[in-house]
Design a protein around this nucleic acid. Sequence first.
RNA 1: GCUACUGUGGCUCAGAUGGUAGAGCAGCUGAUUCGUAAUCAGCAGGUCAGCGGUUCGAUUCCGCUCAGUAGCUCCA
Length: 637
Amino acid sequence: MSFKVTFPDGNTKDFVAPVTIGEIADGISHKLAKIALGGMVNGKIKDLNTKVDQDAELKILTWDDDEGKTIFRHSSSHILAEAVQNLFPGTKFGIGPAIKDGFYYDFDSPHVFTEDDFEKIEKEMARLAQGKSVFEKSVISRAEALKYFEDLGEIYKVELINDLPEDAEITTYKQGDFLDLCAGPHLPSTEKIKAMKIMSIAGAYWRGSEKNKMLQRIYATSFPKKTQLDEYLNLLEEAKKRDHRKLGQELELFTMMEEGPGFPFFLPKGMILRNELENYWREIHTKAGYAEIKTPVMLNRCLWEQSGHWQNYKDNMYFTQIDDVDFAIKPMNCPGSILVYKNSLHSYRDLPIRMGELGLVHRHEKSGALHGLMRVRCFTQDDAHIFMLPEQIKDEIKGVISLIDEVYSLFGFEYHLELSTKPEKAMGSDDIWEMATTALREALDEENLAYQINEGDGAFYGPKIDFHLTDCLGRTWQCGTIQLDFLMPEKFDINYIGEDGEKHRPVMIHRVAFGSIERFIGILTEHFGGAFPTWLCPVQVRLMSITDKQLPYIEAICKKMQAKGIRAEVDARNEKIGYKIRESQTMKIPYSLVAGDKEMENETIALRRLGKGDLGAVNVDELIENIISEIKERKNP
RNA sequence: GCUACUGUGGCUCAGAUGGUAGAGCAGCUGAUUCGUAAUCAGCAGGUCAGCGGUUCGAUUCCGCUCAGUAGCUCCA
C-alpha cells in the first residue's frame, strides 16, 4: 500500500507503508537521516520511529528546528533523571522539560544538591549517553500507570496521572533502568547526545505554586557536538560582560547600597543619560499631544481605598502617618492623575486629554525578586493617562502603540507583545472586562500585530497590552504597557459634559513607553554593551595630547565643543597616550581625539572612534558639525 | 518570601586544618614629556558585612541578622 508524503518545500514523494519517519528521512538522503531528531507529522511533533502509513505532511526535524532541539533536550533531561536515580537513591521525580537553551529536571531528594555534585552527575550522564540506550515507548492503561508509580512512591507522577484528562493516552518512555511518565517525543537512543553540562541548581515550587513543596531543580544543557557546547559557554561569558550591573559600576552610571536594597543611586554620569532620555521623552510626548503633570509621592489613605489599591495592592505598598492620618506612598500614578482631571470641568470637545507624568513610584517587591535596575523598589514610570470618549478608544490605543514602537525602533530593540486578560483579583463586571479586552484585541488585530495571550495576567482594574524586551542573557522584561480602564472613572466618578449638556463617563488608558526609566536604562546598557549612542553618552568626547605642549590647543577645542553643547572633556594627566586611550576606550567614550605637534601645526585632530579604531587626522570644525548632527539625529552607533 | 550559594581595602581577587591579613588596578607624592588599550618609584588605605556563641585566642568553626547571585513565586 503506498501513500504520499508532502514536505515543507511543497515536494511530494510516495512511500510504501509501513515506514518510519527515520526511514523516510533516509529515503531522502543518508545525510539527513543522520541528523534527523524527530518529525512533524500534520503539525504534530513525533518520535523519529513513528510509523507513517497514510498521506501526510511531514517535516523532518533537525537541530536547526526549535522542535528538534526540544526533542533533543527533552531526551537529555531523561538522562539527567536516570543519572540522579542511579547516584541518589530515594529521589522522587517531578517533571523535566526542555526549555530555551537547555532543560531541567525537578527532584525531591533526601540529598541536597550542591555544585560539588555537578561533576559526578555529569560523569554519570556521559556514561549513560555513551551506553547508547534506546528510548522505548509504551502505551499503558491508567490503572497500570498508577500502580507502577504508586508502588515506587512517586507521588508527583501519581498526581500528574490523576490530573490527565479521562480520555488521554498514557505513555511511558524507558531508557536503561529509568522509566518515566512522558508524552514524548524522544530521540531513538541516547547516541546523538555528545555534550551535556549542568548549569545550575535552584529551588522551584512543585507545579509553580508557592503553596506547594519546593523541589530541587537542576538546570543543564546539551548539544550534538562538544564544540557547540563550548561555543554556547563562550557566548554566556561574553553576555556576562554586557550585564548592566557590571557596566553600571564600570561606567559609573548607578550604584546600589546596602542601606537601600532595591533603591538605586544614580551617579552623575548615569544622571546625564537619564536626563537625555527624559528630554527625548518630553519631546515626543509634546509632539503627540501630551501635557505633563507632577503629582505627590504620598497621598491620603482614603484615595487608595477609593481606587481599590488599599484592597488589592496593599502587600506591595509602603505606608506612613501624618498627624495620625494614614498615608500611602504611591505605587502607581493613576489616582493622582485622576485628581488632576477632576480639578476642572471637561467638555467632550476637550477629549481626549493626554496627561503624562514622570512619576516616582515605590513598590515593596520581595527581596529575592530584586535585580539590578531591572527590578527595583522605587522607579520612575514614564506614565500617562488618557481620558477619552468611548468612540476614541481604538484610535488612542493605536496611537500609543505607534508611539511606543517609535521609541523602541529608535534604539533598534526587538520586542514581543502580550495581551493580558482578567485576573482572579479583579474589580468590575465580566461585561466591562469583555468590552475592554475586545477593544485591545481589535486594535492589535487591525494593526496586524502578532501577540500572545496571557490569561489572567491583567491589572486588577483592566486588561493590558505588554511590550517585552530582552536582556543580555535572553531573559525578557516587560517595559511598555497599555492598560484600558473603565473602572477607575467609575470609582472616582469622573465625567465630561457631552453634546447634550449632560454628564458622561470617560474611558481611561494607563500607559508607559519606557516602562520604568530605571529598567529601560538597564535594557539599554545591555543592548549597547555600554557603548551608547552618542546623544546618550555621559562623556561624548575625550581630548588628549601627546605632551603638555599641546594642552592649550586641545583645551581650546574642548571649550569650543562645550560651547556647542557637546559633552567634551580634556584628559590632562601626565600619562602616555596609550594609557589615556585605553581608559577612553574602556569608558566607552565614542570620540577620542588626540593632538600632537602634527595636528597642532595643521589645526586638525586625530580621531579615534569607539569600535572603529584610529581614523587619522580630521578638520576640527567639520568634526564638530558631524558630532552635532549625530547627536541631533540620535543616531545609533 | 522560598531553595542553594556568596560576602576580605574604591574595584578585581589571594590567603591560613583557628595564632588579629596580602597582590594588582584605582588614589596620593615624586620622577618621566613620551604618538593610539596600562612608564617607573615611593606612600597611604582593611575592627576580613554585622551581632552573638565555642575557644587561652576567630576574619577562619557554629548560630542568627543584613546584603548580593542564580532560579522559583510575584511584577514595570
